[in-house]
Design a binder for these strands. Sequence first.
DNA 1: GGACTGACTCGGT
DNA 2: AACCGAGCCAGTC
Length: 104
Amino acid sequence: MDEQTVEQVRSVIASIPPGRVLSYGDVAELAGLRSARLVGRILAEDGADVPWHRVLRADGNTAEHLRRRQLDLLRAEGVAPRGDRVDMRRYRWGAESGRAPESR
DNA sequence: GGACTGACTCGGT
DNA sequence: AACCGAGCCAGTC
């Protein structure tokens, strides 16, 4: 794994404000990567000390094995998941008034 | 090298 | 909503 890439990804995630979220793909883009999977992989290995819970799937779902913990952590900072799903249009970093720069 | 596996995503059925 | 196939990239066997 390229150290520089890892640091890029970690710094992007570290800069996400509390109460906001990004998708793996968003992080990949901000870090200059083409692969969202790489972001997940990096978090799996070196994500323990960054706010990894602010990163979720593009559709607002979380990875199965993390679901419970991640949603708890998010609730703790003001994000209210609807069932297993987070409202990306509302909480996505950069989407202040329900309008995302690129809300799909 | 090939096949398989993931904290992924998108477009098409 | 659910399932598929294709891209994606690094690691393991």
